[in-house]
Amino acid sequence: MRPSTASFAFLSLVSAVNGDIHQLIVGTFGTEKLYTLEFDDSALTLELIGNLTTNAASSWIALSHDKKNLYGTSFTSASPAFVSYTLGSATDIIYNTTVALGGNCSSSKAIFVTAASESPYAVYGTPFGGNAECGSVISVDENGVLSDVIQNYAYKSTSGVHGMAMNQNNTFLYSADDSANTLWTHSVDSATGELTYVSSVDGPVTGADPRHVAVHTKGQYLYVILEGANELAQYTIDQTTGIPSFENVTYSLIPSDVTSSLYWSDEVALSFSNNYLWATSRARSTNSTGYISAFSLSSDGSIESQLFLNATTTSGGTANSVAPSSFSDQFVALTDSSIGFVQIWQLGTDAASASVVASVSIEDGGCCANAVWYS
C-alpha cells in the first residue's frame, strides 16, 4: 500500500531539511558525448558539471549493479556495438572497450542495453532497424568491464526490440518487440547469464507495439509501454513459468481528446520505494507536447490508480525518457531531444500532480537520450 498523504508530506519535509547532492549521467543520440549533472534536492538546483567527449553516441546507457561501470549503445557505429566505461565518480568516466554484437544483425544499430544485478552480471543488448532479429549476451571481466559476446539469440525476422527488463532475482528477461508487436520471455542461466526461449505473445491489439517494460520487485506484475496504442498495460506474471499474461488492464498515456496517431508512448519506470510507477508519451510534432503520468501501486505491485496526466514542456523529441531518482519518490529526471535538456520533476505532496523544479539545457544537436542516477 502506498504511503498516506500525511506520511508523504512528512517524508518531503525530512528531505527538505536534510538536503543532499546527487549526480546523473546523460547519453545522447547523435553527438559523441556523456554529460554529468548535479542536483541539489534542497535548493532544487540542477547544474552541468561534466562534459566528456567519447568515441560513440549512446542512445541508451545503463549502470552496473555496483555503479562502478557504465554501459552504452554505440549508436553512431555503422554496425551494432556496445561501449564500456569505468566510473571512478560521476565525472571520472574512463573508456574501456567497444564490443560488437556480431551475428546476423550487422546492418542495424544498437538501441538498448541493460545489466544484470546478480552474478555473473551479464549485460544484454539489442539492435533496432534492418536485420534486428537478434540480441546479445555479453560477459564482463572481474572488474565489470564488457568482455565477450557469449550468446547471440534469435527473435524473429520482423523483430525490433526496443527495451528489456529483468525480474529482481534475474531469473527471467522480458523483451518489448516494437516492430513485431510481441512480448518475449527468456529464462536466464544463473551460471552463465545466457538465455533460453520461454514464450512470445502478441501485443493486446494489432499496432499496440510494446516499446519498454518494467518488472515490479515482487515479480508478480510486468508493466508494458504500448507505443502504438499510447497506453500502459499491466501483465500478470505466472510465478512458476515466468510467462506474463495480459488481463485487459490498460491506462491511456495521452488525453482522450487528442489524436492517438500524433503521439508515440515511450518509457515506464518504478519509483525509489516501488510505491509509484512513472510513464511518458511523446508527440510526433514539435508543435505539440508529450505527457508524463504517475500511478499508485499496491504492495504486490498491481496498479491502484492513475494519479495524473500532465503535459510536458515540449514534444520530447525521440526521448521524453523518465528516470526516477534512486533516493526518493519525490524526484524524477525527464530528458528531451527536440531542444536538448534534462528536467527534474517533483511529485506533489498529495501525489496528485507533478511539476518541473529544475532544468539544464544541453543544446548540442544530439542530446538528450536517457539519464541514470549515479548517486
Rank of each mutant, 00 (worst) to 15 (best):
T318K: 13
L63W: 04
V360Y: 00
L87P: 01
T217F: 09
F172T: 02
N55M: 11
A233S: 12
F246R: 10
M1P: 11
A294I: 01
A319E: 10
S273K: 08
A110W: 05
S361Q: 09
S175Q: 10
V198F: 10
A333C: 00
S293W: 04
S299M: 01
V360T: 08
C105A: 14
Y124M: 08
G88I: 02
T349E: 12
T312W: 09
W373K: 07
S321I: 15
S199L: 05
S74A: 15
D92R: 07
H162L: 08
S139L: 04
S375E: 15
P255D: 11
S285D: 11
Q330P: 01
L270P: 12
Y85S: 02
A294N: 12
T286M: 08
S42P: 04
Q346E: 14
T349K: 07
K68G: 14
L63N: 01
S315F: 01
S265M: 01
L270Y: 09
L46S: 04
F331K: 00
L307T: 01
A115E: 06
E133W: 07
I237Q: 03
T126C: 13
S281L: 02
F8M: 08
S159G: 07
G193I: 11
I49T: 15
A57C: 00
I362D: 04
F308I: 08
F39M: 00
T91R: 09
L46H: 04
D141Y: 03
L34Y: 02
A132H: 09
S326D: 15
A369K: 05
L146N: 07
L253K: 01
L347P: 08
D141I: 02
S175I: 01
F331D: 06
T98G: 00
S59V: 06
I138C: 08
G130T: 13
N274D: 15
T250R: 10
S298E: 13
D209I: 07
K109C: 00
M164V: 01
R211T: 03
I292F: 00
G228K: 02
V372I: 09
S179D: 12
S353M: 05
F308L: 09
G30D: 13
H65I: 05
M1W: 09
V188Y: 08
S302F: 07
G72R: 06
T280V: 10
I243H: 05
N320Y: 06
S157K: 11
K218N: 15
F82W: 10
F82N: 03
G27A: 06
F10A: 12
N170M: 15
G316L: 06
A57R: 08
G290Q: 02
I362L: 13
V137C: 04
M166A: 12
S315M: 03
T5M: 10
E304N: 14
N51C: 02
T158R: 11
S136Q: 11
V140N: 04
V188E: 01
D66R: 06
D40E: 00
T28R: 03
N18D: 11
S108Y: 03
S375A: 13
A191P: 02
N248G: 06
L44Y: 11
S296N: 09
A122C: 10
G125T: 10
T185C: 05
A180N: 15
D40W: 03
S12E: 10
E267M: 07
A180E: 12
N69K: 11
S147M: 10
T97S: 14
A191V: 15
G219L: 06
T259P: 06
S175P: 04
A354P: 03
L232E: 05
H22D: 10
A229M: 07
F246G: 03
W278P: 01
Y221E: 05
A132C: 15
Q168A: 13
